[in-house]
Design a protein around this nucleic acid. Structure first.
Length: 990
RNA sequence: AGGCCCGUAGCUCAGCUGGUUAGAGCACACGCUUGAUAAGCGUGGGGUCGACAGUUCGAAUCUGUCCGGGCCUACCA
């Protein structure tokens, strides 16, 4: 070629003189293979440390990781959670904050305890035979085994953070800190000992969690019991002047139950205000029975109207009459065993749990033996007056006079788990007292232990609580509930940044309704309640020196120190171990995670941590289930100890469902593993999908969405690739000032300016979807389908010196700068690949900030002008499409349209620029007027009509534009003058 | 069973305080290009706005009921 003369003869191949996109950046990403390589690169350059260093002087945005449970491989829910967190952290960091991410793990709790127990059992050892310290060590080892595995899986998701210095709730430091936090709550005076019925297995002598319970068929006795009415209080006392209730003076309220042994524990009867009741008098009993029924003519019984007939028939009454209405309000009964140690009032209490589906419409209420019973009792009387009638082996205690020592279940022998003597003894006593109306048997579903298969009972046990309705000093004399509610108003749950009230309503409702916090558990794997209780008066020992010794011991030896150390050592010289009960319970694991703020991030109000120099905001992000979980416990813990929520902003996400919106489950087989996505698609496909989802709702994940996300990825990748190719060799000297740019470039810069605001706003309010869709739409609609399409000619064919081409490349450089930054949080791998392809000497795209966009780029005129031009253009492209269908043309460059424009100002706009260039045609004629009737028009664009004609002249061998050969420059007969200019420049540069 | 929430084209989503023929991107079909080419451009089909009832001159947008789905409901992390 070099030998050929300048101004080559016809037939010269001009292809090499073009500036076609050129880049080593491959179209095919190979994500699955390259992502791990990129992770290695970041590890090599120490990206995390560099990020911290770069942000050292910036204002802090504190992101606190809610610790996942250290158990099992991660699933898609973890992936969504961690990826969203990563998006928050990366966008905050690039927006100019110092946003650190310290991942953590939650380690204590039942799942691990169960697993370890099972392992011991497989090895032939029962939990009760394993020393506590050995058992706990095994739990620790179990968690320790999973943490590194999960950590590697999380890292594979592209989560940037301090993976070498993660926190756990089981480190000695954490265990000591959690214990210290509890002691701090104790000092507020909010901790008290109360009681609560729990699922209890007498056979195993242990309480059970709901998940350890299974329901089986069981045949139980059923009894109908009369409670004689003693008094009617409310009406008389409230002075309505109505002597209501005289008609029920000699009546009895009838209850029905399947657990006769709970009768000694009865303290109330529940009724429903929305059920109709009446007093019924027995007139006659059935004759000819083999036995004498307990019911007698003249008996007056209060019953739900709907159930009265059933009860009467069961009791073998032959006829009866309704004497009066019955209103339970204020009614007080006597206990059937009154006179035998049960001489208390049995009040009637209104409760929503009462139905008239079965029984009598009145519910026997033994607050120590049922969840509903407990709730309604404590609602009226608090923790007072709840008896402990049954011990841990299911035997009546002395609080059940007359039955002491009798067992509910047989505890050993052949009939272990079968009914013991308790039920029969109670029924006999009821008969003797004349209180039994009828009895029978019922087969029903009843809770059993999933281990021993033995029946369970509800049993009242002493427990530790944190009071939510008691004023305390840290709360400034308010109650914990009041402080928490005030903090809920202060915190942004989304209601402030997006107007979405969901999270706010949810947490508020929960705090408004919740009872006292039950913090004690009769378990092994956790942090103890490190307290001593005075045997003399039941008070908790509060001594700073003792507390300090406890915390110090735990720092040195972990929570085990509580059990391993002699009580006297903690108590020191001032107190005698014999005077105190050392509490052996462990803390609710929610207290653990509720305390993480204290030892992971601290907060400005934390007395134990140095305040951050320049705190901005503390962010929590978790699934919406954490309104009941971590958000909740952290709020209460922090409000109790510091009078303040530990966070300022809370972000929540929904759950990951399958394609149909159904829960993913192994048994259905609709589970998608993040590991599989990483391996098959590349994790960025998932990251892109999550960034584009409305994460507050549930996320549907299936093949369709992954395909769609892949497609979106390809589009973005190709856009980046094209930018790289077009910017090859771009130098600062080529840069053009915005003011001297052509309209099209001024418009593009204006779009960048607009996008900058959209993206920043979206990122600061964590609306990743809004940012991403704005970016994608820009890439598709503005860049690819319009700007680049139009500018290809200039980009490929103009001489390097061309002002137009320089302006174009300047604008594209700014596009590149922003797209790589804006996409970096979402596509960290691809953004890095793109950035380093262009700037191989730079370290990482992730060390950048979102580029500032000069205010001078705002150009409303260009924005509106180009919008009008594009409208007019759409009529031309529409017309070209028709011409194509009619085979008049193929490529648009084969056309030279005639355009009639009625509006003078629009016509002026079209004439002010090269409209042919915009339409990618070889020339265009713009004329005034409405145009001929057969011209092409679009209904939505008034006053523009187009007729397509074939472009005259010859086809330029270089730019493929049709032109008049008479205008060709000497020596270049087959190309346009513009191309001739470019070729001469190209030739000269060789 | 209760509390909170979701339900707009095949998919992901816009549609503000109710107001003309309900929009975008992707997917799909067809066409163009072959100098972003396992790419790019254009055109087109596709929605009883979960169902029903109500308020209103007028509802995807307000109210109620129902259906489907999700999370939570105190020893579950």
């Amino acid at each position: 070629m070099a030998d050929e003369p300048k101004g080559a003869p016809q037939g010269r191949d001009y292809r090499e003189t073009l500036f076609l996109p050129d880049t080593p950046f491959p179209m095919k990403a190979g994500l699955a293979q390259r992502e791990p390589e990129r992770l290695n690169y970041w590890a090599e350059i120490g990206l995390y440390a560099r990020l911290r260093e770069a942000a050292r002087k910036r204002p802090k945005a504190v992101f606190h990781d809610g610790p996942p449970y250290a158990n099992g491989p991660i699933h898609i829910g973890h992936a969504e959670n961690k990826i969203l967190k990563d998006l928050v952290v990366r966008t905050r960091q690039m927006a100019g904050f110092d946003c650190d991410y310290v991942p953590g793990w939650d380690c204590h709790g039942l799942p691990i305890e169960w697993k370890v127990e099972e392992d011991f059992r497989k090895a032939g050892r029962k939990k009760s035979e394993v020393p506590a310290v050995e058992f706990r060590r095994a739990c620790r080892e179990y968690a320790d085994k999973w943490i590194p595995l999960q950590r590697e899986e999380f890292k594979r998701l592209g989560i940037e953070g301090d993976w070498d210095n993660y926190y756990t709730t089981m480190s000695f430091e954490a265990e000591a800190a959690i214990a210290a936090e509890f002691l701090r709550v104790v000092r507020t005076g909010l901790v008290y000992r109360g009681s609560k019925p729990v699922m209890w297995s007498p056979v195993e002598r242990t309480s059970l969690a709901e998940a350890e319970v299974e329901y089986q068929e069981k045949t139980s006795p059923t009894i109908w019991v009369k409670f004689p009415i003693k008094a009617v209080r409310s009406a008389l006392n409230q002075g309505h002047g109505v002597t209501r209730g005289l008609e029920y003076a000699d009546a009895s309220v009838v209850i029905w139950t399947t657990t006769p042994w709970t009768i000694p524990g009865n303290r109330a009867i529940s009724f429903s205000p929305s059920i109709q009741y009446g007093v019924y008098e027995v007139e006659s009993i059935e004759q000819g029975l083999a036995f004498e029924p307990w019911v007698k003519p003249g008996d007056k019984l209060a019953l739900a109207d709907k159930l009265a007939e059933d009860v009467m028939r069961t009791a073998k009454a032959a006829s009866w009459k309704r004497v009066s209405d019955f209103d339970g309000e204020g009614v007080v009964c006597a206990h059937p065993f009154s006179g035998k140690g049960y001489d208390f009032d049995v009040p009637l209490l209104a409760g929503d749990h009462v139905t008239d589906d079965a029984g009598t419409g009145f519910v026997h209420t033994a607050p120590g033996h049922g969840a509903d019973d407990f709730v309604i009792w404590t609602k009226h009387f608090g923790q007072e007056g709840i008896p402990f009638t049954v011990d841990e082996e299911g035997r009546f205690t002395k609080e059940a006079p007359g039955f002491e020592g009798l067992e509910i279940l047989q505890l050993d022998g052949k009939n272990i788990g079968k009914d013991g003597p308790a039920n029969k003894a109670v029924m006999d006593a009821l008969i003797e007292a004349g209180a039994l109306l009828a009895r029978g048997q019922l087969k029903h579903s009843y809770p059993h232990s999933w281990r021993s298969k033995a029946p369970l009972i509800f049993r009242n046990t002493p427990q530790w609580f944190i009071a939510v309705d008691k004023p305390y000093a840290v709360g400034g004399g308010r109650t914990l509930r009041q402080v928490a509610l005030a903090e809920i108003d202060r915190v942004d749950w989304g209601q402030k940044r997006t107007g979405d009230q969901t999270g706010y309503n949810r947490i508020k409702g929960m705090i408004e309704d919740r009872p006292d916090w039950l913090v004690s558990r009769q378990r092994a794997w956790g942090v103890p309640l490190p307290i001593f209780v005075s045997k003399a008066d039941g008070s908790i020992l509060q001594d700073d020196d003792v507390d300090a010794r406890i915390v110090a011991a735990m720092k040195a030896g972990g929570a085990d120190a509580w059990w391993a150390t002699d009580a006297q050592e903690f108590l020191g010289a001032k107190h005698k171990a014999a005077d105190y009960e050392k509490v052996e319970d462990i803390l609710d694991v929610w207290f653990d995670s509720g305390s993480t703020h204290a030892f992971v991030v601290g907060n400005p109000e934390a007395p134990t941590r140095e305040s951050f120099r320049n705190p901005v905001t503390t962010i929590y992000l978790e699934g919406s289930d954490q309104h009941r979980g971590w958000f909740h416990s952290s709020l209460l813990e922090s409000c109790a100890t510091r009078g303040r929520a530990p966070y300022d902003e809370v972000v929540t996400h929904g759950f990951t469902m399958d394609e149909e919106g159904k829960k993913m489950s192994k048994s259905i087989g609709n589970v998608i593993e993040p590991q599989a996505i990483a391996k098959n698609n590349g994790i960025e496909i998932l990251r892109l999908l999550i960034a584009g989802a409305e994460y507050g709702d549930d996320l549907r994940l299936g093949k369709t969405m992954l395909d769609q996300s892949t497609e979106m990825y390809r589009k973005l990748r190709n856009t980046l690739r094209y930018l790289l190719g077009s910017l090859k060799g771009f130098e600062e000297s080529e840069r053009v000032d915005v003011k001297s740019m052509p309209l099209l470039e001024r418009w593009l810069m204006h779009r960048l300016w607009e996008l900058d605001r959209t993206v920043r706003d979206a990122y600061t309010t964590y609306q990743f979807r809004a940012a991403l869709s704005a970016i994608v739409e820009f890439c598709n609609v503005d860049l690819s389908a319009f700007y680049v399409d139009v500018r290809k000619d200039a980009l490929y064919c103009d001489a390097p010196s061309s002002e137009r081409r320089r302006a174009c490349r300047t604008a594209l450089d700014e596009v590149f700068s922003r797209l790589t930054a804006w996409l970096a949080p979402i596509l960290p791998f691809t953004a890095e690949e793109t950035w380093l392809t262009r700037f191989p000497d730079d370290v990482s795209v992730h060390l950048r900030l979102f580029p500032e966009t000069p205010a001078a780029w705002e150009d409303d005129f260009a924005g509106e002008e180009v919008a009008r031009l594009r409208e007019a253009r759409s009529v031309v492209t529409g017309a070209l499409e028709v011409a194509r269908r009619e085979k008049l043309i193929g490529a648009a460059l084969e056309a030279r349209p005639r355009v009639w424009v009625a509006d003078e100002s629009l016509r002026a706009s079209l004439q002010a620029i090269d409209f042919a260039e915009l339409c990618i045609t070889s020339g265009i004629d713009i004329e005034a007027g409405e145009g001929p009737a057969d011209a092409f028009r679009l209904p939505e664009v008034a006053g523009v009509a187009v007729k397509v004609e074939k472009a005259p002249g010859i086809k330029c061998a270089r730019s493929w534009k049709y032109f008049d050969p008479a205008t060709a420059l000497p020596g270049f007969p087959d190309i346009t003058p513009r191309d001739a200019q470019a070729v001469m420049e190209w030739d000269a540069a060789r």
